[in-house]
Amino acid sequence: MGVTTSAFARHFNFEFRAGLRNKNLLLMNYLFPLGFYLLMGFIMPGINPFFQDVMIPSMVTFAVLAATLLGLPYPLVTAREAGVFRSYKVNGVPTLPILVIPALTTAIHLGLTAIVIVATAPLLFDASMPVNWVNFGIVISALGLACTGFGVLIGVVSPSTRMTVLYSQMFFVPSMMLSGMMMPLGMLPDGIRKLAMLLPATHAMNAFNGLSMGTTADFTPWGGVIILALSGMMALVLALYLFRWDNWTRRRSWPGLLVLLPYVVGVLAL
């Protein structure tokens, strides 16, 4: 095993375990999404009987958003603030694993959470199962890529931990309200619907409905999948470009907004 492979494996192993040992990450990767899933499972079917049709995609999307937007950026910012990246730099740890490994380990954690939701929701809450598992896997992968990219990018451009919370909530809260997780996208006014299409969760929910759950999509679902995958890759490239080893290095963060470009195109084209 070469130096790089061995170091990558060691780094991956540490980051994966950090996702279980770090209380904040444990909360965002597992406890918060699974707790919310159980709460919604007990409450929502009584209020909205149609919720059972979208329960699995909604709760999986919620789990992805919690782990990536709320869990992933914070440790990156605190590590930069605490001088961890400077230690990494002088010891030859490259930028790529610093950003990609947390994204990969987060993807594994949220994958495990998604499995728990998919496996238990039909039994516990009589939730509808996906009718096309391949497409379900494709949509969740695209969503995971888009949101881990967003999470890493927020961690890189955020100047402080306080701003991290703000940036994360800027995407998380509207995603909860407008993406179709809580109410159908079609019920939203046209202007708000356009705004909702700037969010990864909206494209994911639309693609889950149209491609895997056997229900109707509000707009072209494959277009949304492409936008998710493209924005995820763009976010990772932008994060690598904008990465700072310490807080003293000044770098403009506005180029990070370029990650919204595929979504803007989506609003105009889909």
């Binding site: 780094h11 540490f14 770090n22 590590a79 961890v84 400077r86 230690s87 002088v90 010891n91």
Partner: peptide, 30 residues
């Protein structure tokens, strides 16, 4: 990076990393 050893003024390690993990982690990169 393989020829120099650096002790920074603030050690700067991930807060959950143990000394044994840190030793394995940095030695792997070297």
């Amino acid at each position: 990076r393989h020829l120099i050893g650096v002790q920074l003024q603030s050690a700067g390690m991930p807060e959950n990393m143990t000394p044994m993990e840190a030793m394995r982690f940095f030695c792997a990169y070297h």
